[in-house]
Computed example of a mutant assay.
Amino acid sequence: MTLTETAYAEIGLAFIAAVLLAGCAPAEEAPSVASADEACERTIATLVAERDYPADQMTGCDGWKSEEPDGFYVLRVNGYCHDPKGCGSVLMGWYAVEASTGAVYDWDVGEMQIGQRIDQKR
């Protein structure tokens, strides 16, 4: 093998190694959220992607920045009411979004604490 062939072979091996290692890189965290509206958008997108909720059935959220635990937005996701006379409840679930990472979790209303992370099935 000539010097040129050896150099090309080494470059090829380095390229293959780089491609393989890039596939092993950890997944990036979701960007941070700065408002309850952004947390709501992230939660609805997660529910559509991860739990197969129909996007057209969710109208939005009622939410606030939590003091306990600090650094989270707690959200109630609401669905559409299809009854013209009104509905008793349109609650689709309670969720928490970590402001610094944008990670989405179930919110345990009974215990008032964060549950399981739900935005990792990709």
Score class of each variant (00 low, 15 high):
32 S>Y: 08
62 D>I: 08
41 E>D: 15
64 W>A: 10
29 E>V: 10
112 M>Q: 15
100 S>D: 13
97 V>F: 10
109 V>D: 10
22 A>V: 10
31 P>E: 14
87 C>W: 04
114 I>V: 15
116 Q>G: 02
68 E>A: 10
99 A>C: 03
73 Y>V: 02
65 K>W: 00
19 V>D: 04
20 L>W: 08
82 H>K: 05
46 T>M: 12
107 W>S: 05
98 E>W: 05
90 V>E: 09
65 K>G: 00
69 P>G: 04
87 C>I: 05
102 G>N: 06
58 M>C: 03
17 A>C: 08
27 A>N: 14
83 D>A: 05
99 A>H: 03
78 N>W: 00
82 H>M: 10
72 F>C: 04
47 L>D: 06
80 Y>F: 11
28 E>P: 08
100 S>I: 01
60 G>F: 08
93 G>T: 07
68 E>K: 03
52 D>A: 14
77 V>P: 00
70 D>P: 00
111 E>D: 14
61 C>I: 06
15 F>K: 15
86 G>I: 01
116 Q>T: 12
61 C>F: 04
74 V>F: 06
91 L>M: 11
101 T>P: 06
64 W>T: 04
1 M>W: 06
108 D>W: 02
114 I>R: 03
80 Y>L: 13
92 M>P: 00
50 E>L: 01
51 R>E: 15
62 D>Q: 08
29 E>P: 12
3 L>F: 12
111 E>G: 01
118 I>L: 08
35 S>R: 02
66 S>W: 01
64 W>P: 00
33 V>F: 10
30 A>S: 15
118 I>Q: 09
122 R>A: 10
85 K>S: 11
108 D>V: 01
99 A>D: 09
65 K>H: 04
38 E>I: 06
32 S>H: 13
58 M>S: 07
37 D>S: 15
104 V>S: 05
43 T>S: 10
23 G>N: 14
105 Y>I: 05
68 E>Y: 03
89 S>H: 07
69 P>Q: 01
103 A>D: 11
78 N>Y: 04
70 D>A: 09
121 K>C: 02
20 L>A: 15
40 C>G: 14
118 I>R: 09
99 A>N: 05
95 Y>A: 09
51 R>A: 15
31 P>T: 12
122 R>T: 09
39 A>V: 12
94 W>S: 13
73 Y>M: 01
26 P>W: 02
6 T>A: 11
8 Y>K: 12
